[in-house]
Design a protein around this nucleic acid. Structure first.
Lengths: 149, 149
DNA sequence: AATAGACAGTTACGTTTGAAACCATATTGA
DNA sequence: TCAATATGGTTTCAAACGTAACTGTCTATT
């Protein structure tokens, strides 16, 4: 710890970022190698796969992704015919996004990788590690939700 | 949760990444606005400020940063005269990196921001939240350390 | 010694990123 | 009813990024 009372090793943003980077990187390598997906693409696919139907803005808020990232990921997934857009509702600025059957199938496959990685993580971190982490993340999630209000 | 048993909302890499992004982004905005530092630059400055003297490779391992990121951050900090290099030891490939007095001073100032943000976080997440998160991150850190072995 | 491989760090190059400007549509309020 | 302003999403452009190839040095094998 420094003279001025700041300790990098205890600084949460640093620790969180390092941990997230480490964990995400290893998983990204696998979906990247097998499906050629980028991180924003996988995250968009997963958001739609698990929530069914969302707008681009909703995806961004839900996953904390910049809107241009979402916009490009949506475009890429659309090009693969994994996603379709529609401007249904009264507000014609808004695009409803949804996976195509091919997209749903793809999502299922990548979700398989995800489950495998999850199991690997469970072993790597141990049960108490997982539980503590999950609890801590819930606190952050509450904070995110309240900050948005 | 999906038919195939994968639940994005429970998937640790996703939750961790979202949390880290959210928390890092707000902090990055402040050191960026006040000192014009990029994320790798702040992280490099902080690593040296708190550990005193490291090589580029050590910084990369310690902070999980790609070596080209470290290389560029070191260059940028050197340009600002916040950092100096020296090839002391027997191995002339290795560069010992160290902050200049100006660098130490700058580090002290940004560390002030960091402490303020830390306090803000403590309030935002609550004591139990912080503790659980810290415990969980320790598990990840052990995993990182063991993976490297 | 001489050669091959490993390793620290940099550079070149194509890709990804985000801030800001943009377009189109909605909403507000004068 | 018509500005003025806000919002969803895209595009532009300069900066940041990572892969792969590079330089220089070290180590191991012969």
């Amino acid at each position: 710890m420094d003279a001025d009372g700041f300790d990098l090793e205890q600084f949460l943003p640093f620790r969180l970022n390092r941990a997230a980077e480490f964990i995400a990187l290893r998983f990204a390598a696998s979906y990247r190698a097998q499906y050629g997906l980028t991180r924003p693409e996988w995250r968009t696919l997963a958001a739609l796969g698990s929530s069914g139907r969302m707008t681009a803005t909703e995806i961004g808020v839900h996953s904390t992704m910049h809107k241009t990232k979402v916009s490009r990921a949506v475009f890429a997934l659309e090009e693969r015919r994994w996603l379709k857009r529609s401007r249904n509702g009264g507000d014609r600025r808004v695009e409803q996004l949804e996976l195509t059957p091919a997209g749903v199938a793809a999502y299922g496959e990548v979700a398989g990788l995800a489950r495998a990685y999850d199991a690997e993580l469970a072993e790597l971190l141990g049960e108490e590690g997982i539980e503590a982490l999950s609890l801590g993340l819930s606190a952050v999630e509450r904070a995110i939700a309240s900050r948005r209000a």
